[in-house]
């Protein structure tokens, strides 16, 4: 009985020793693993901080870029507006030029017709004076020819007056008065 108890005690002591040694090894492994994980955590924290810094820098750069783009776009819009308005003005000037050219042609035609009318009236006046003098001198006068000429001059001058009236109407229309 004593021997059995002794054997059991020995076995227990040996087992306890083996387990203690094993536990010490496991504890050492745990410690090693803990140190490894701590280093890994520190590395990850460092990496996170680095990436966060980079992101912040990138965000700031993006904000700056956006602001720059916005400012440039504002400038582009302003320049485009100036260009468009200049084109508006050019178009308006072109229209005014066309109007003045058209008006100038109409007025030129009317003025020419009126000038010709005046010339013909002067000629008619001279012919009439000559006819009057011939009649006073007892010479023959071709009254029919004189009357026909007066009719022609009157018709021509009426046409000139119509051209002048048309020019006036065109001026009213084109200049919007």
């Amino acid at each position: 009985m004593l021997v059995v108890l002794l054997l059991l005690a020995v076995v227990g002591a040996v087992t306890a020793t083996v387990v203690a040694v094993d536990q010490r090894d496991v504890a050492a492994e745990w410690e090693e693993r803990a140190l490894e994980l701590e280093a890994q955590r520190d590395a990850i924290d460092e990496q996170r901080a680095e990436v966060a810094d980079q992101l912040e820098v990138t965000r700031d750069a993006l904000v700056t870029s956006e602001r720059d783009v916005d400012e440039l776009e504002d400038r582009v819009r302003a320049l485009a507006d100036e260009k468009a308005r200049a084109e508006d003005t050019a178009t308006t000037v072109q229209v005014e030029r066309d109007v003045f050219i058209e008006l100038s042609e109409v007025i030129s035609d009317a003025t020419g017709a009126l000038d010709s009318c005046v010339s013909q009236l002067f000629d008619l006046q001279a012919a009439s004076v000559e006819a009057f003098n011939r009649a006073n001198a007892g010479q023959d006068v071709d009254i029919d020819a004189l009357n026909a000429r007066a009719t022609d001059v009157t018709r021509f001058c009426n046409q000139a007056r119509t051209a002048a009236a048309n020019a006036e109407a065109a001026a009213d229309r084109l200049l919007g008065s």
């Binding site: 745990w30 090693e32 693993r33 990850i44 996170r48 990436v51 966060a52 965000r59 956006e66 776009e73």
Partner: peptide
């Protein structure tokens, strides 16, 4: 009981959806 040998799950550094970025004007 042995210590784990597999590496820890690496936490997400940053979720891009959580980052407040300015609206991209382009």
């Amino acid at each position: 009981v042995e210590p784990p040998t597999t590496p820890l799950d690496t936490p997400a550094v940053l979720d891009i959806d959580d980052v407040e970025l300015p609206e991209v004007a382009a």
